[in-house]
Computed example of a mutant assay.
Amino acid sequence: MSKMITVRMSDDRVAAIDALVASGRASRAAVVVEAIDRLVADLERERIDREIVEGYTRIPSTPEEDAWAEWSARESIREEPW
């Protein structure tokens, strides 16, 4: 299900949207929906990042875990066929 919403925008914003439409975007609505989707995805990534930092702050890794992570990273790089 979808709903129609009305949004007021400055002439400059509408002109920017119209330029995107002219460059190949499907429509004004498609531009707005894509922008909202990107914003929502960015905010979700930021939330996840914060939770990861908070988790490691609350329960820091041990020296053994750090050593294992470093070894694993070096092995992954060594195994790459560059």
Rank of each mutant, 00 (worst) to 15 (best):
K3Y: 07
R28Q: 10
A67P: 01
A35K: 05
E70Y: 02
E80K: 06
E65T: 03
E79T: 06
E65R: 09
A69N: 09
A67C: 09
E54A: 10
G24K: 14
A30G: 10
S72N: 07
A15V: 02
I36N: 00
W71R: 12
L39S: 12
E44D: 15
T6G: 06
V33Q: 05
D42R: 11
K3A: 04
E79M: 03
I5K: 14
E75H: 06
S76K: 13
E80N: 12
E64T: 09
L20N: 00
R74H: 02
V53K: 15
E79A: 13
R74L: 09
R38L: 11
R38E: 12
W71L: 15
I17P: 00
T6M: 03
S2M: 05
S23Q: 13
E51H: 11
E65P: 00
A69S: 13
E75Q: 15
D66P: 00
R47L: 08
P81E: 06
R78F: 05
S72Y: 04
R28F: 02
S76M: 07
L20I: 08
P63Y: 06
A15T: 13
M1H: 05
P81R: 11
V53F: 02
E44A: 14
E64M: 05
I36G: 00
M1E: 09
R58I: 01
T62D: 07
A16L: 12
I17A: 01
I36F: 13
I17V: 15
A41T: 12
Y56S: 00
R8Y: 08
A35Q: 01
S2A: 09
A26I: 07
V7I: 13
I59W: 14
V33D: 13
S27G: 02
A19R: 15
E46M: 14
V33C: 10
R25C: 02
T6V: 06
L39A: 15
R28L: 03
D66L: 15
V40N: 03
S23A: 15
L43Q: 14
K3C: 01
I36T: 11
V33Y: 12
R78I: 10
I17K: 00
R78E: 13
A19S: 05
A35I: 01
W71Y: 09
W82R: 14
E64K: 08
E44L: 12
G55M: 02
E75G: 02
S23H: 08
S27L: 04
A73W: 04
A35P: 02
P81D: 14
E80W: 08
A29T: 13
A26Y: 06
R78Q: 14
M1T: 08
E75I: 12
K3M: 11
D42G: 01
V33K: 14
T6L: 10
S72P: 01
A15W: 01
G55A: 13
D42S: 13
A22T: 04
Y56N: 05
